[in-house]
């Protein structure tokens, strides 16, 4: 975390973080002063920490949907690569779709976590500028979805369950992507995920951007981190179309009902995984641990189901979503 919020972030909708950051900075200064001068400041520090905690809880309880979208996109929020590093005991990355290329926007590999083996599939955003460019900011091309599907079929053969981490602004809109069948790659991945004869657990860890998210989002259990979002279109895109102005993105974010609580309310996800106070970016370790515990719990639960039941229930689950009147 940087000591002061960069201006761009504040303008982007993270303004609510400013008083918290100021407090954090003050505590840090006091600590430095205490160690540098051997002054007894622990009472003051405790009081400030208390205030920070209370204020953080308060601020985060009242975030608008648009502000949550910014928390979901926060630069310090744990990414798929962080989960790989912090959560797994072993990881063997597998590359390539066997047809066209290796899309770095989707990471696939064999993983072990507390003795549980599985296939991990996750959108990859990258940390450094170079990485982020290589990963196309988490926007996958068709080869990404084809790679994911090819590895998921492998997992099925190896009788390994599948865990997917969703974190994408959306599938990439570009000439090459259209030429190579972006729509059909996503459609095929969605369809075939209904057919995988092994348990599938999906977690939205940040951005659940439309079809690009759903492309690896068909699971027996779907969880969402508290401050992640899942939407049919980005608030910016929706604002541009319906409000004819990208500046109306906060209104669009509100209208789209894209927060984890909304999704749970509509029965579109199974569970909201609570984040540490002040968001996942304040405590990566605790966030990763919570996700890890949820994944292990669900995998254990699903491992007891016969394959036929598993597939039937997977279809039934999505079949019930959005029932119209008169049905």
């Amino acid at each position: 975390m940087t000591d002061t919020a960069p201006r761009s972030l504040v303008q982007d909708g993270l303004a609510f973080e400013r008083p918290l950051r100021e407090l954090e900075l003050k505590i840090k200064e006091l600590r430095n002063l205490a160690t540098g001068t051997h002054l007894e400041l622990s009472d003051e520090i405790h009081a400030l920490e208390d205030r920070l905690r209370k204020q953080t809880v308060e601020v985060y309880a009242q975030l608008s949907p648009w502000e949550r979208v910014h928390v979901a996109r926060h630069a310090d929020r744990p990414l798929t690569s962080d989960y790989v590093q912090m959560m797994l005991d072993d990881f063997v990355e597998l590359h390539g779709d066997r047809v066209f290329g290796d899309d770095r926007a989707i990471l696939t590999g064999l993983a072990t976590m507390q003795g549980q083996r599985f296939l991990l599939v996750g959108h990859r955003k990258g940390k450094t500028v170079k990485d982020r460019l290589a990963c196309n900011f988490g926007c996958a091309h068709p080869e990404g979805y084809r790679k994911a599907l090819q590895k998921m079929r492998l997992a099925e053969k190896l009788k390994l369950p599948i865990v997917t981490f969703i974190n994408t602004p959306g599938a990439y809109p570009g000439i090459g992507a259209e030429e190579r069948g972006q729509a059909s790659a996503i459609a095929k991945s969605i369809l075939e995920m209904f057919d995988l004869k092994v348990p599938v657990v999906c977690i939205v860890i940040g951005e659940g951007g439309s079809g690009g998210a759903l492309g690896i989002g068909i699971g027996d259990r779907v969880g969402m981190l508290e401050n992640s979002y899942y939407s049919v279109i980005s608030p910016e895109g929706c604002a541009a179309i319906l409000w004819k102005s990208g500046e109306k993105a906060p209104e669009a974010a509100d209208a789209l009902k894209l927060t984890s609580k909304d999704l749970l309310r509509f029965g579109l996800v199974d569970k909201v995984i609570e984040e540490p106070v002040g968001g996942a970016h304040r405590d990566q370790r605790a966030t990763v641990d919570r996700v890890k515990a949820q994944v292990l719990e669900w995998l254990a639960e699903l491992s007891t189901l016969p394959t036929a039941t598993l597939l039937e229930q997977r279809y039934e689950k999505f079949r019930r979503m959005g029932m119209p009147l008169g049905s």
Partner: peptide, 24 residues
Amino acid sequence: ARMHEGAISLMQMAKTCGALAMQN
């Protein structure tokens, strides 16, 4: 997908593909 129904309309992509998977 229809924006006015938010993620509910997104999930219709899953519903329709799921039906095709069953039919297959």
